[in-house]
Design a binder for these strands. Sequence first.
DNA 1: CAAGATTGAACCCTCAATCTTA
DNA 2: TAAGATTGAGGGTTCAATCTTG
Lengths: 154, 154
Amino acid sequence: MSSKSNRSIDDLLSPREHELWRAIKKLGEFALSAVGNEIEAATGLSGADFGVLSRLEDLGGGRLGQKELALSLGWDKSRLSHHLTRMEGRRLLRRDPLTSGRGMTIGILSSGRRAIAVARPVHAIAVRKHILQFISPAEGQALLVLAGHLNPAV
Amino acid sequence: MSSKSNRSIDDLLSPREHELWRAIKKLGEFALSAVGNEIEAATGLSGADFGVLSRLEDLGGGRLGQKELALSLGWDKSRLSHHLTRMEGRRLLRRDPLTSGRGMTIGILSSGRRAIAVARPVHAIAVRKHILQFISPAEGQALLVLAGHLNPAV
DNA sequence: CAAGATTGAACCCTCAATCTTA
DNA sequence: TAAGATTGAGGGTTCAATCTTG
């Protein structure tokens, strides 16, 4: 055992591993908030609000079951319920009980339509500006493969 | 203009761009929480607690100025102050006023030493298991370059 | 009972205002 | 005044407990 180290050498990350881990944390923390902040400044929608409203439009044409919404966002039911309560209070959407069976259906309202229409191009431009412009096609492919390996369940 | 699209085609992300953006969000959100959850389950420390304590040890041998700590974490002073208050309450560290000049100095306490000692190998193993094992050397290099482009200021 | 959803408490983060001391 | 830090309010997230309906 080398006297240069005061730690168990097998347990810890190498400098290279540590550097990579920090790069990934930076990507996750900074890039996400940069895009979210641009959307919020332009429209008052948070990044999470944007995710909710865009799924309502893209997956359901403006209306979606709450369970499906939760699944497509990867959110747990409690988080979604709290978030919908806040968005409902801002008149971005409404909840209605499902006529047949249990459950709720979520419908986008006109102010939600307006907000998401403004937010979409802001979102696209911000994602390109903060992230995509730095990724080559090969690097993008690597990222897709990497993401595919993460958490089989989500 | 094509009749197939009901949106302004220049404003929105292509399917490929959208896929990439979702992969990056997944990487940022899932990978971080997976590692944090393992540390928390094993030691009671959150990922943020781990960052604070490991910097105290690695950068200051157990004691660091609050300003330096904030800088090295990339946190704003308010967030750090709130977090230190909680960690101080759990006897993981203590605050002392700087003898000369303004400011505070943060010192790790014995229970903080014990917790971080347990957490380090858990952290290293979790990072490898959830992330690093899926990244080839070339992909890692691409990630480092990408992270280097993000936010010149941090 | 089980699926779907809600609630409340505890914790975390951000912002703006404030406090303290050089 | 300015640097360093604290505080309180408000929104966001998680967990466990609960409600409601088939």
